[in-house]
Amino acid sequence: MSKKALITGLTGQDGSYLAELLLVKGYQVFGLVRRSSTSNLERITHLSGDIQIVAGDLLDQSSLMDVIAESQPDEIYNLASQSYVPLSWTQPALTAEYTALGVSRLLESIRRCKPDAKFYQASSSEVFGQPDESPQTERTAFRPRNPYGVAKAYAHWMSVNYRQKYKLYTSCGITYTHESPRRGIEFVFRKITHAAAQIKLGLANELKLGNLEARRDWCYAKDAVYAMWLMLQQDQPNDYIIASGETHSVKELVECAFNCVSLNWQDYVSVDPAFYRPDEPVQLVGCIDKIKTDIGWQPQHSFEQMVELMVDYDLKKLSNSVI
Rank of each mutant, 00 (worst) to 15 (best):
P135N: 08
Y120A: 10
V285C: 15
A93M: 11
Y154E: 03
Q298S: 14
Q234W: 11
M228R: 00
D239T: 08
V285W: 02
S48C: 01
G286A: 14
M1N: 12
Y176W: 10
A197T: 04
A227F: 08
N320V: 05
Q233S: 15
C256P: 03
R35H: 08
Q283Y: 05
C287L: 04
T8C: 05
A214M: 11
L232S: 00
S125E: 11
A96L: 07
D289P: 06
Y162D: 09
L87P: 01
S302D: 09
C256T: 12
E308S: 13
L22R: 00
T90G: 01
L209S: 05
K200S: 06
P86K: 09
V271I: 15
S159C: 15
Q136P: 10
Q91A: 13
M228C: 07
A153R: 09
T193M: 02
W89E: 00
V33Q: 01
K317I: 05
V54C: 03
E70N: 05
M310E: 14
R163N: 10
K251S: 08
A195E: 12
R182I: 04
E252P: 04
T193L: 04
A96N: 08
D50T: 02
S16Q: 09
W218R: 01
W265E: 07
L21I: 15
A196M: 01
K200R: 11
L47T: 12
L59G: 02
P115T: 12
S159Y: 07
L101P: 00
C260V: 09
L101S: 08
S36G: 12
P147R: 00
R182A: 06
I68T: 01
S39M: 04
E186D: 06
P115N: 12
D294T: 14
F142E: 07
S125M: 14
V261R: 05
N238P: 03
P299W: 10
G129E: 13
G56P: 01
F142K: 09
P86W: 11
Y169F: 15
A153Q: 14
I44G: 00
L101Q: 15
A196D: 04
A196K: 00
T177I: 05
I291L: 09
G9Q: 06
Q234C: 09
L315K: 02
Y154T: 09
N238W: 01
D217C: 05
Q130A: 15
E255Y: 12
P86T: 13
R105C: 07
S16W: 15
F275V: 05
N161F: 13
P131N: 08
P115M: 09
V254Y: 05
R111N: 08
L6K: 01
